[in-house]
Write a protein that binds this DNA or RNA. Structure first.
Length: 1052
RNA sequence: GGGCCUGUAGCUCAGAUGGUUAGAGCGCACGCCUGAUAAGCGUGAGGUCAGUAGUUCAAUUCUACUCAGGCCCA
């Protein structure tokens, strides 16, 4: 027996049952093991951090990954899928700090690095249960039991190996650079971390008057949004090519004073200024000014005007204040002019004791005080607030400072050309991310700031002697040449240690003695992005183990993550892979956009517009959610998440699919169809079967092409369209009667075989996207027939493309169009389909005439018309029209095209005949003879003399709307059948129950019913049909046509 | 300020190597069906294809600019 559904379908319940089935029978494992090991398809999982709950966007990314992997499996590839967890880094530390109530780095040291890191290790997997549950629930198949974890010794060892390679080849150096620095986390951030944390904020925007030496009452006007950096000011920069002016203004006491600023920026001045002098920037160079704040003594020449080509007149005053410790441009010109570097800010972002007035104050807090100070000294010219986007720490959200710091770098700029070159081998979906966003990023490549001054992360494996000599360690084996220094000063050879943890604080206690020198580890950790970017080899503990496994699995055939990873994982994979292996790390990458709420706003906790994936999946089912996310818009376009549409997907696609299956199951069970009969060859099946099979085969072909092109959205849409429109709405609806018949003949077997084949094929095609429902249908079908040797659709293979009868597809298309036109006419004339009509006329293009003839029966049945007359376009009663073919006449006649087009529209019957017979005709236009060829003109039958017509796509149809008494009677009979059927249902009769009918009604009605008696009885499964009093059985009163009547039915 | 993407019906999305009737689904209106039925189907009304200028015989499609939204970078 095929499974039948009695109640409303509960998707979640089906899915949970399927999950259990998969797990009990190890279907995932089998889907890998049963595939040819030589047909490898490599997928890399980008490791998430499990210390936050997963969101709906994770469902999106995981769905995409899963779809491609399942599809490739269906194609016979062996797709190993190793899960991974990102465990290190600041986000973890921050969570732990919160838990422990720790606010600064010093407190961590006090608390104990060992304990702190242990807490981090424990915290990493806080939400791992949620992650695992969501992964499981949405059917994302990935091997969670064999996940790579970035904080294991093995993983770290592989990372070290790669770092040593960088180091030994001279690509790691210690530099001094301006870096975005988080004063809360007390660590510099890499540029890709920086990109994660831009926020729109309001900052003070102040204009400061800087007194020029030896010029009474004359000031430079200087603009800044970071007042606190003024304390560290050492110079002012102008652009030597920009025009500057000196203007005269009056203060509140009407005393004149003078300001110098860029001419283009006088817009910032109040009304009533007077230009008294003009300069080029060049003229101002070297001018000295009075220092604004003198807390910090300087030992070099400073406080004069220098030249900076970065100075623009787009904002500010055209004069830029320079504080070399706090800005990239500033630092560079500072070096050029040998300016002093003033940094009175400590590592937590507070002013040191030199800054007596603002001592211990965080620089951002100090801003208003500094402004107040300037104001009291009458140096504040103007104060505003501006809103701009400013980098913030991507995790703790504090504003970053630009800060000169020592740091370790990877010299990625040394091999950026290779990165750019290799990027061209990667297929990006969509391509513009690869060319544009990622490509631009590579072209502007800066060296990778590798080190982090934190605790929980992969230690930088570089040991340095006091005199600055250094070397890198690339394995645990190498480490064994060192000594472990115990707290009480004992030196134990590392080789004698039983357990070794490569994290802080342990590694820091390992020292090396070589050539009489002592080497200690440099205290920094490395950027976590380096961890995840190492996963291609580190997940296999390469090169210490699994050499072959790694080599077979590099590069990845496919990865997929969100666009936010452009500068994150996509980059770190590429940067590391390019250097180590001279190959790109991945060949195909799907980049998915954000998921926005239905208003198009970004989902965020603060707006309260986030969607809980667990709830959604429970409510609509994982398949519906997956299908919706993927079919609504391509992954690389932002999805506006709308629950109503989810419901729609469920109802339209899944509802229809299951309904179609249920229809099949209902009758197949009644008939005991088990697909035991011989397969009826394609050629021997009825037209309609050949048609749906052809359409199905087209679908198989298309879906493969879409999937192969990573276009999941088009694949999903094609499957959905076929299922709803072709299969359910046309094939099943038209063929219902074939299944009702009682005897089992060749026609019925063909119908069963055809529908069965369609259903099981759709199950296979949709299995990558909707793994649950497809499994349900596949198993329901196959468990009865055992036609396929697989216990799961996910172990089956992608269906072969069978025969496609193109002509038949076209014929049906024409027929469907004609049917649609007739319906339109009926609807406009208020003629129900139930009312039979005598005749219709059809005019189509010559090449389509055969189609209409062959589809005549189908058309007539669909529209309930008795006779179809196909009119030749040559027929006298068809009025033909000519339409210009612009594609052809456009280039030929140029500017005259519209005149020619009009002339063509007005061609008379004879001229059209000429054209149709293949002759050219001459048109006189503005005194010129122009020759028109048949290809310039499209001729179509537009009207039929004496008939009301409707046209569409070159098909013209007319309907005889005259109702003869016979037709009316027939209509009445149909109406009558309709009432009886309704009653059968109201009375809760079974579809196969036989009945007897008693009718009480007018003579007209009786006459009509008598005439059609046998037809009525057949349709309603009636054994008796009598006229008389309705006093027993199930009785209802009706209006049939215009006739009142009473009907009673009784079960036999 | 720079880069990339997007703007098509009330909503979500298709589409067009430039060719004169721009398509679906939802929603809406009207109707149908009742042997897939706590479903299903049909018909219809909805569009200056964001705006402006240019190239062209012809632009919603190509180009430039503008506006709006998004993302990324400064």
């Amino acid at each position: 027996m095929y499974k039948q559904y009695s109640d409303k379908i509960k998707y979640s319940e089906i899915e949970k049952r399927i999950l259990e089935f998969w797990e009990e029978n190890k279907i995932f494992e089998k889907s890998i093991e049963t595939r040819d090991p030589k047909k490898n398809f490599t997928f890399y999982e980008g490791p998430p951090t499990a210390n936050g709950r997963p969101g709906i966007h994770h469902v999106m990314a995981r769905t995409i990954k899963d779809i491609i992997c399942r599809y490739k499996t269906l194609q016979g590839y062996r797709v190993n899928r190793k899960a991974g967890w990102d465990t290190h880094g600041l986000p973890v530390e921050i969570e732990v700090e919160k838990e422990l109530g720790i606010k600064t780095k010093d407190e961590i040291v006090l608390y104990g690095v060992e304990k702190f890191n242990q807490a981090c290790k424990n915290s990493v997997f806080t939400y791992v249960k949620d992650w695992n549950e969501l992964t499981r629930r949405i059917g994302y198949w990935i091997n969670l039991d064999d996940a790579y974890i970035t904080c294991t010794n093995e993983y770290i060892e592989s990372v070290w190996w790669s770092l040593k390679k960088f180091f030994d080849e001279g690509y790691i150096y210690k530099g001094f650079k301006i870096q975005p620095y988080c004063t809360r986390c007390e660590t510099p951030l890499s540029s890709h971390e920086l990109s994660l944390g831009y926020q729109d904020v309001k900052d003070p925007s102040i204009y400061v008057a800087v007194k020029i030496k030896n010029q009474p009452d004359t000031f430079f006007l200087v603009w800044t949004t970071t007042p606190w950096t003024l304390i560290s000011n050492v110079a002012l920069a102008v652009n030597k090519d920009v025009d500057y002016v000196k203007v005269k203004l009056l203060d509140e006491n009407k005393t004149p004073y003078y300001l110098i600023l860029a001419e283009a920026r006088t817009v910032v001045l109040p009304q009533g200024f007077e230009v008294v002098e003009k300069y080029k920037g060049q003229d101002l160079l070297g001018w000295e000014y009075e220092r604004l704040f003198d807390y910090v003594p300087v030992d070099k020449k400073a406080f004069y005007v220098i030249e900076g080509d970065f100075v623009t007149t787009e904002d500010g005053s055209g004069i830029v204040h320079i504080a070399p410790a706090f800005g990239e441009d500033d630092y560079q010109v500072g070096k050029k002019y040998d300016l002093p570097l003033i940094n009175p800010v400590d590592k937590s972002g507070r002013f040191n004791e030199l800054i007596t007035d603002f001592k211990s104050m965080h620089v951002k807090e100090a801003d208003p005080h500094i402004i107040q100070n300037l104001k009291s000294r009458k140096l504040l010219f103007k104060k505003e607030t501006i809103e701009h986007s400013y980098p913030h720490c991507w995790r703790c959200k504090s504003p970053l400072l630009y800060y000169a710091r020592e740091s370790w770098y990877i010299a990625t700029t040394k091999y950026v050309d290779m990165m750019i070159e290799l990027n061209k081998q990667i297929n990006w979906y969509p391509p513009e991310v690869g060319k544009g966003r990622f490509g631009n990023w590579l072209e502007e490549n800066k060296d990778w700031a590798l080190s982090r001054d934190r605790f929980w992360g992969t230690p930088l494996p570089i040991w340095v002697s006091e005199d600055g000599d250094m070397f890198a360690i690339g394995s645990i084996e190498e480490l064994k040449e060192g000594y472990f220094l115990t707290d009480d000063g004992k030196k134990i050879p590392v080789s004698e240690l039983t357990d070794l943890d490569l994290h802080k604080p342990y590694v820091d206690k390992i020292i090396f003695e070589k050539n009489g020198k002592v080497y200690r580890r440099t205290p920094e950790l490395i950027d976590v992005w380096y961890d995840s970017g190492s996963m291609p080899f580190a997940q296999f503990h390469y090169p210490f183990e699994n050499k072959e496994v790694f080599e077979q699995n590099y590069p990845a055939d496919f990865i997929a993550e969100g666009i936010d990873q452009t500068r994150g994982w996509f980059y770190s994979l590429h940067a590391i892979g390019t250097f180590l292996f001279k190959k790109p790390a991945y060949k195909n990458v799907i980049v998915n956009e954000l998921i926005l709420d239905k208003e198009g706003k970004k989902m965020s906790k603060s707006l309260g517009n986030t969607v809980d994936p667990f709830e959604i999946v429970e409510k609509y089912g994982a398949d519906t959610t997956r299908w919706y996310l993927v079919s609504n818009s391509p992954p690389w376009k932002a999805t506006l998440f709308n629950e109503d549409d989810l419901f729609d997907v469920q109802r339209k696609f899944f509802g229809t699919l299951i309904n179609t299956y249920a229809f099949f199951a209902l009758y197949a069970n009644l008939d005991g169809f088990k697909y035991e009969e011989d397969e009826i060859p394609f050629e021997k099946r009825p037209e309609i079967d050949k048609w749906i099979l052809s359409a199905l085969n087209v679908l198989i072909k298309e879906v493969k092409e879409y999937f192969d092109d990573y276009d999941i959205t088009k694949a999903a849409r094609a499957i959905s369209e076929f299922t709803i429109e072709q299969l359910s709405n046309w094939y099943v609806r038209r063929n219902r009667r074939r299944f009702w018949k009682s005897e089992m003949n060749a026609d019925k077997i063909s119908a069963y075989q055809t529908l069965y084949h369609c259903l099981i094929t759709i199950a296979k095609l949709s299995s990558p996207i909707a793994p649950f429902i497809s499994e349900e249908i596949y198993r329901c079908l196959n468990s009865v027939t055992n036609k396929e040797p697989y216990e799961s659709v996910h172990l089956s293979l992608y269906p072969e493309v069978g025969p496609i009868d193109e002509q038949l597809l076209h014929k049906m298309e024409v027929a469907q169009k004609i049917v649609s036109i007739v319906r339109s006419i009926r609807s406009k004339n208020n003629l129900k389909v139930r009312q039979p009509l005598q005749k219709m006329l059809v005019v189509v293009k010559k090449e389509d005439q055969d189609s209409v003839r062959e589809m005549e029966q189908v058309i007539l049945e669909e529209v309930n018309v008795k006779e179809l007359q196909l009119l030749d376009t040559d027929s006298d009663i068809v009025i033909k029209k000519a339409k210009p073919n612009f594609k052809s006449i456009g280039p030929k006649f140029g500017k005259k095209v519209n005149l020619v087009a009009n002339a063509i529209r007005n061609l008379d019957g004879n001229q059209i005949k000429q054209i149709e017979s293949g002759q050219n005709i001459i048109l006189q236009i503005e005194g010129e003879n122009l020759e028109i060829t048949p290809s310039d003109v499209e001729v179509f039958g537009e009207e039929i003399k004496g008939w009301i017509v409707e046209s569409e796509d070159g098909i013209t149809v007319s309907l005889d709307t005259n109702l003869t008494p016979e037709l009316i009677e027939e209509g009445l009979a149909r109406e009558f059948i309709n009432r009886v059927q309704n009653m059968r249902k109201d009375a809760d009769f079974e579809v196969s129950d036989r009945i007897s009918i008693m009718v009480e009604g007018s003579e007209n009605l009786q006459k009509a019913i008598s005439k059609m008696k046998s037809y009525i009885m057949q349709e309603t499964l009636a054994e008796e049909l009598e006229f008389g009093k309705c006093d027993s059985g199930f009785v209802q009163e009706w209006k049939v046509g215009s006739e009142e009547c009473k009907i009673s039915i009784t079960k036999k």
